[in-house]
């Protein structure tokens, strides 16, 4: 749903989320809403708390206060790992550094969630791995180890692993940092593809403006612990707020 919103029920709702580490107040009341099928890009400077926010959404960090709703479940009220399981099965998370299992081959990395969480036969899993690799634009590299791959290829393998269980929502933490512009563009292409072909809702955290312009339906900006601006891409492009202009155009 390009443009997002317009009478739909939100799929992600973040309300007044706070988080501090000691005296360091990183998030000071973040409000953000995602609608099904849209791609929202969250911009913010280094250290502004983007990764912390994603960590809270996926249950790797505990929010200090506020509320997070994911697909109608209030995850900030979760107390046990069992409750998180359903979320982990339906929300994909792409780590900034790919975080591939370096003791496993490419095939085993992508097959891992399928082997653990589905009853698919080995043949069916192999088949699915091949299709996932093709989808992220990689050929026959099943037997390679992660250390043999370039950074861009690792990211794409990680993306294949992230979408193996067909999540409804994917959270991307800096999907293009450290990649050359051409590889970055193929990642942007993939994010668009996933949105179009699988209807995946995406939250893309980045400070890569080029990526933002390529994938965003809407853009938000995190600044000093709060979301200072949210709007459709075109609106943000021409925004007069100095904080936005400085971020976009230096």
């Amino acid at each position: 749903m390009r443009g997002g919103g317009n009478g739909q029920e939100p799929i992600v709702q973040i309300e007044g989320v706070t988080k501090a580490f000691g005296n360091n107040e990183v998030l000071r009341g973040v409000n953000l809403t995602l609608y099904p099928g849209e791609t929202l890009v969250l911009l913010g400077g280094s250290g502004s708390g983007k990764s912390v926010l994603l960590g809270i959404l996926i249950g790797l960090l505990q929010a200090g206060g506020g509320r997070v709703m994911l697909s109608d479940m209030e995850v900030t009220a979760f107390r046990t790992e069992e409750e998180w399981k359903a979320i982990w099965r339906s929300v994909g998370f792409l780590f900034q550094g790919a975080a591939l299992f370096d003791s496993m081959s490419v095939r085993d990395n992508i097959a891992f969630p399928l082997e653990i969480h589905t009853d698919l036969s080995r043949a069916a899993i192999d088949d699915k791995v091949s299709r996932l690799l093709a989808m992220v634009g990689l050929g026959d590299i099943q037997q390679k180890m992660p250390s043999e791959l370039s950074g861009g290829m690792q990211k794409r393998v990680a993306l294949a692993r992230t979408i193996a269980l067909e999540p409804r929502i994917v959270l991307y933490d800096e999907p293009t940092t450290g990649l050359d512009p051409i590889t970055s563009d193929t990642i942007a292409e993939l994010i668009r593809e996933l949105q179009k072909r699988l209807g995946i809702t995406s939250l893309v955290v980045t400070h890569d403006i080029r990526l933002a312009f390529r994938v965003a339906d809407r853009v938000s900006m995190l600044y000093q612990g709060k979301i200072v601006i949210t709007g459709p891409l075109e609106e943000i492009r021409n925004h007069q707020d100095p904080r936005v202009r400085e971020f976009l155009y230096g």
């Binding site: 996926i58 982990w88 780590f95």
Partner: peptide, 14 residues
């Protein structure tokens, strides 16, 4: 340190 342990967690493997 390369976040593979976090990756296990979000793939719903303890």
């Amino acid at each position: 340190v390369t976040r593979q342990i976090d990756a296990l967690q979000v793939l719903a493997v303890n």
